[in-house]
Design a binder for these strands. Structure first.
Lengths: 136, 136
DNA sequence: ATATTGACTTGGACCAAGTCCATTGTAGGA
DNA sequence: TCCTACAATGGACTTGGTCCAAGTCAATAT
């Protein structure tokens, strides 16, 4: 779980208690916390951490490519530490649970030239929606 | 363009000047306005229209299935009158232009059973990102 | 070990998007 | 034309997020 910490240190990222707890909170698979959830969990370990620090740190982790920002609903953005592997998301419309998934094939290839309107298409973001086993 | 109005009338939707201008503003292809943009354009025709009315009306159009709500970025939701035909979106990272596109195949079919985690998958939302001809 | 300093953190004000609600207005049927 | 249920209003409120001036501290150089 602390390979994220390792990588950050290796990249010369200045380590502070605040940054460390934010990175620790984000460790793991299928983690998709909102900024406020990150703040709440970080504050449980380090009560004086400021909200702005959480936003700053998340923003840097995103800029470094270590964490992905995902806009699953129109509400708060979520932060996904599983950024090193390309993947998509499966979301439960009932309870908002999120799973990382890897569809077959390359979704980018499914967009024919005639539908590209002269764009240079660089990436694709797929969100599957449905009901999880508990909500069905 | 006013087939939207027709359909709404046909479904017994109570027509008012406010609802009519909102529906008119949304008419057309490749239209993806934010609520505030809808408000601004509606207000150009009907200056006393209230913000809450625009939100209410958009919410009803979405509930009726006549307009789709799309969360293209983490910012304001956009409203897409092209809801009768399933389609996906192609977004320019430079200027935020949005085009409706129809990829080959069914993206839903690309998610193997092993990656469904017991979910009943009902729909899929795909956002292609890149640079348009002008921004490239 | 200590001084230095530029980067990091803080907290509070501010902003944008959206919701809520009590009041007022009106579309459309009798 | 009158009623009344439904719609619109506007202003307060909430949520999610950004900004900034001031204070603090991690890392480096001495």
């Amino acid at each position: 779980m602390s390979d994220l910490l390792e990588r950050l240190r290796g990249r010369g990222w200045r380590m502070t208690p605040q940054r460390r707890v934010v990175a620790e909170v984000l460790a793991g698979e299928h983690v998709h916390l909102t900024a406020d959830e990150v703040l709440a969990r970080a504050a449980a370990r380090l009560p004086e951490i400021a909200r702005a620090t959480v936003y700053n740190t998340l923003g840097e982790l995103v800029a470094l490519g270590e964490v992905a920002e995902v806009a699953i609903d129109g509400r708060a953005k979520r932060y996904d530490p599983n950024a090193h592997r390309p993947h998509q998301h499966l979301v439960c419309s009932g309870c908002a649970a999120v799973r990382d998934v890897r569809p077959d094939g390359d979704p980018l290839a499914d967009l024919p030239a005639a539908e590209r309107f002269g764009f240079t298409v660089l990436e694709v973001e797929v969100t599957y929606r449905g009901l999880c086993a508990d909500c069905a």
